[in-house]
Amino acid sequence: MSITLSRINVSAYRVPVSSPVATSFGVMHNRPAVFVRVEDSDGTFGWGEIFANWPAAGAEHRARLLIEDMGDLLLGRSFDNTPDLFATLTRQTHIRALQCGEWGPFRQVIAGLDTAMTDLEARRTGQSVARFLAPDAQSSVPCYASGIAIAQADDQIALSRAAGFSAFKVKVGFDMARDTRLLAGLFQTLAQNETLCADANQAWSLAEAQSFVTTCADLPLGWLEEPLPADAAPGDWRDLADHSVIPLAGGENITGTDGFADAIGTGVFGVLQPDIAKWGGLSGCWTVAQAIREAGLRYCPHFLGGGIGLIASAHLLAAAGGDGLLEVDVNPNPLRDAFDPWRGAEDRGTFPIPDSPGLGITTLPEEIAPYVTYSAELHL
């Protein structure tokens, strides 16, 4: 049964924060999000989220890109299913993206639309997204605490532990000597059942990354994420993997099924982390997640944004199964927490997957309305 889109709504939000979120490549001074709603001619709807963390003006840009540059490809058009929408939009926007060189924004808008369409399709069947993708999907998934600044890790890990987490990921890539010293100290504070990972956010050259893994070789890090730029030479990634006893992780900045096939085939990564808001949405990343699992690698979806993307990532992980963990940014974010992703539970270490249709989202929370910076609608 084809899907004819009759209405599209998109809203960009931006929330000021008292403590900026720092990475090795830049600082987020507020928390943005872009939420999209699609509706078919029968009135069935679905929700998605578009990546908006970078650049600083990215949220409003992507929302307007959807409305002003892609609306003609969507409204009143019929699609067989979500993969058909994904493939059609990717093909039809190729020259537009080539003309302006903005491959990322177009991919991210398509990813958000893909998630919304998958939500719509699942809602039509009365199933949760997780069970729409895999009938044997898990009813909950384990989480890890992410976004932890290495300089504040003692306090942030303690707070995360109190919230129910037993796995943590700290951001490194600022000062090599300080980072490695602080990491070593953190392991002295962990319980036996706790895990610590590190994320360099593409900070280092090959020589610097090799220095880090040599210095930290005796530390039982769960993984080292993006120690090199995602587009570093394959030989550099291979050299680092050969040099490291720490599993390497990456994927949030890999795009395309071919890109992930290459990443899987190199044997470099122990953990792969596609981000549904940056490329692929639910349907594209579902294909990739299955390939990762079939290759015997660990699938841990990357996500750092609002509530819709987090909930969708949890459904995808529940469908994929395995020993993966759901990334949960522990920095304050009203655009996530307003959705009550844990449904009132105080324990954040496990994420519940309810059986309600689709992603279980009907309307946006009223409390985020004051933070809207752009909102638009297209309809027949």
Results as ranks from 00 to 15, higher is better:
Ser2Gly: 13
Ile3Phe: 12
Leu5Phe: 05
Asn9Phe: 09
Arg31Lys: 03
Phe35Pro: 01
Phe35Arg: 00
Phe35Asp: 03
Arg37Tyr: 00
Asp40Cys: 02
Gly43Tyr: 11
Gly48Ala: 03
Ile50Cys: 12
Ile50Thr: 10
Ala52Asn: 13
Pro55Glu: 08
Ala59Asp: 14
Leu66Gln: 08
Glu68Met: 10
Met70Leu: 15
Gly71Asp: 08
Asp72Thr: 15
Leu73His: 11
Leu74Phe: 08
Leu75Tyr: 07
Gly76Ala: 04
Ser78Gly: 14
Asp84Arg: 04
Ala87Tyr: 04
Gln92Ser: 13
Glu102Tyr: 14
Trp103Leu: 13
Gln108Gly: 08
Ile110His: 04
Ala111Phe: 10
Leu113His: 03
Thr118Tyr: 05
Thr118Phe: 12
Arg123Pro: 01
Ser128Leu: 02
Phe132Arg: 09
Val141Gln: 11
Val141Arg: 13
Pro142Gly: 05
Tyr144Gln: 07
Tyr144Phe: 15
Ala149Cys: 09
Ile150Ser: 00
Ala151Arg: 12
Ala153Val: 05
Gln156Asp: 14
Ala158Gln: 11
Leu159Tyr: 01
Phe174Leu: 10
Asp179Tyr: 04
Arg181Cys: 14
Leu186Trp: 01
Phe187Cys: 03
Gln188Leu: 13
Gln188Tyr: 08
Gln188His: 15
Gln192Ser: 14
Asp199Leu: 02
Ala200Thr: 05
Ser205Glu: 07
Ala209Tyr: 05
Phe212Met: 09
Ala217Ile: 11
Ala217Cys: 13
Leu219Arg: 09
Leu221Thr: 08
Glu225Arg: 06
Ala232Glu: 09
Pro234Met: 06
Ile246Pro: 03
Pro247Gln: 12
Pro247Asn: 07
Ala249Trp: 03
Gly250Glu: 09
Asn253Ala: 07
Thr257Arg: 14
Ala261Pro: 02
Asp262Lys: 12
Gly267Asp: 06
Gly267Gln: 03
Ile276Phe: 00
Trp279Phe: 00
Cys285Glu: 09
Trp286Asn: 14
Val288Gln: 04
Gln290Tyr: 04
Ala291Pro: 07
Glu294Tyr: 10
Leu304His: 14
Gly305Tyr: 01
Leu310Lys: 02
Ile311His: 03
Ser313Phe: 12
Ala314Leu: 06
His315Asp: 14
Gly321Ser: 05
Asn333Glu: 10
Leu335Val: 09
Ala338Ser: 15
Pro341Asp: 00
Trp342Cys: 01
Glu346Asp: 11
Glu346His: 11
Asp347Gly: 03
Arg348Pro: 00
Gly349Lys: 08
Thr350Gly: 06
Pro352Val: 00
Tyr371Gln: 06
Ser375Cys: 06
Leu378Val: 02
His379Gln: 15
